[in-house]
Design a protein around this nucleic acid. Structure first.
Lengths: 248, 248
DNA sequence: CGGGGACTTGAGTACTATCAAGCGATGTGG
DNA sequence: CCACATCGCTTGATAGTACTCAAGTCCCCG
């Protein structure tokens, strides 16, 4: 959902020069120690006082909220380069947990906002990050509200492929960052449905599996058709629509 | 309820703004003519060049996106006081349409961002607006991904009640801003399911109807239980949870 | 008074969830 | 080294929620 190449033409604010000290938001974190988070441990919990902003260096995190009766919804996945906890709120509204071994740097939240606010060329960068997050959230609302199980799973695979930088044509092998249960909670499905849809895709020879976490996308074009891409997330031009044209 | 007169201060030419004169984001729009949009007409379309930011003065708008095969997902509803089109993107990613007669003011987008960027006390206000929108989007993802039809409908009714400023106890009458089809596309359901759930709530005497658009919430506490409120949207303290404890 | 739109209700279906095994890797202890 | 427990995933059988298709009602408006 982050397509930096399309957005990088920001109008640079005509303003005072800070002598090019901080080039980007990331450099704010350069002085902070890198921390390691083990898979399954939380960076922060829903309800915690929002003390820091985090820059992800390596690994993958899940951000989720839980209903009173235990149902869980994963609201986003965070990758290297993403900022976590930029919200203006005083408390985190979600829980953030490492999925794989994560490396990150933290920065006090208030000071972060203060620094960004004082640095003209950083302000639009923060706004853009947040707008990207908003766009991702909108894509997700469409997926959850209007896509079928199959479309959700395929959309997810394509999203992972895109984030892996694999715009490449034909057989792309991707590594799924999360397990089936996380996929289910991210896609608004059950673990069994996710598993079944993946099996169906495999039987249809649109994908192949090298273990449960390695997926080869064998026919990108067909997959893109199946995902019912809306314009916001296209990664290569699809042509005509085919109904559910393949075997069950 | 949403007093438009609060937003239409003195008409001050935007060019004259100096630090200290602008009290809030709304005042930026004070000098712009108010436009009227008829129900069903669009303010802008998905894909349009993002030329303006809009301040809603009166009425209600739906913001949606459509999949290639026609399925529609309403991503948000906009009310007086809300800002529309604040995204940093060069094109609108959604369509915005008036539901009821809408009154709004527009402001050139780039100039809006430039002005906000140059005005220290406005910057945090914009950030906060966007963070609020993000929070709403997260609530919606939980609703769409993990709530049942009944919970979605009840959540919607309570959201409308909250926005109507009705924190009041007992029998609250609310006016639904949108019709059944819009509710369906907003809640990720079909029109029939929405209708049926409302009928069930009526038969259970949790609500009453004065025509399809006027709903009396007769037992707030029970409704709140049924909505499976997560912490982010509580409007009055609920205590214990009750399973689906009422007749079908 | 008739037409149309919005909403409601009914009957049958389909998709996804639920419940329940089964499978295959990994890891541990006897 | 192998039995055995565990965990994550897959598969099967069945159930149930929400969808689809189809009337039917109500109300507004011409």
């Amino acid at each position: 959902m982050h397509s930096p190449e399309l957005l990088s033409r920001r109008p640079v604010p005509p303003a005072l020069f800070q002598a090019g000290q901080t080039e980007s938001l990331e450099t704010l974190f350069a002085g902070q120690v890198a921390e390691n988070i083990a898979p399954g441990s939380a960076v922060f919990w829903e309800g915690d006082a929002a003390g820091h902003v985090f820059l992800i260096i390596a690994g993958c995190l899940r951000v989720y909220r839980t209903l009173p009766d235990g149902r869980r919804a994963i609201l986003g996945l965070f990758y290297p380069g993403d900022l976590l906890g930029v919200s203006v709120r005083e408390r985190y509204l979600v829980t953030a947990e490492a999925v794989s071994p994560v490396k990150l740097r933290r920065f006090p939240r208030r000071r972060f906002h203060q620094l960004v606010d004082e640095t003209p060329h950083l302000r639009p960068m923060l706004l853009e990050k947040i707008c990207d997050e908003m766009t991702a959230a909108q894509d997700q609302m469409i997926l959850l509200g209007r896509k079928t199980a199959q479309e959700r799973v395929v959309s997810f695979l394509l999203m992972v492929a895109r984030r892996s930088g694999a715009d490449a044509r034909v057989p792309v092998e991707i590594e799924l960052p999360i397990g089936r249960l996380d996929m289910a909670d991210y896609l608004g499905l059950t673990i069994e449905t996710v598993s079944r849809e993946i099996s169906k895709l495999r039987r249809a020879e649109l994908i192949a599996l090298n273990g449960p976490h390695k997926v080869v996308l064998r026919r990108m074009r067909s997959l893109e058709d199946l995902a019912e891409l809306d314009h916001g997330e296209s990664s290569s031009g699809g042509m005509e629509r085919s109904g559910r044209a393949w075997a069950n």
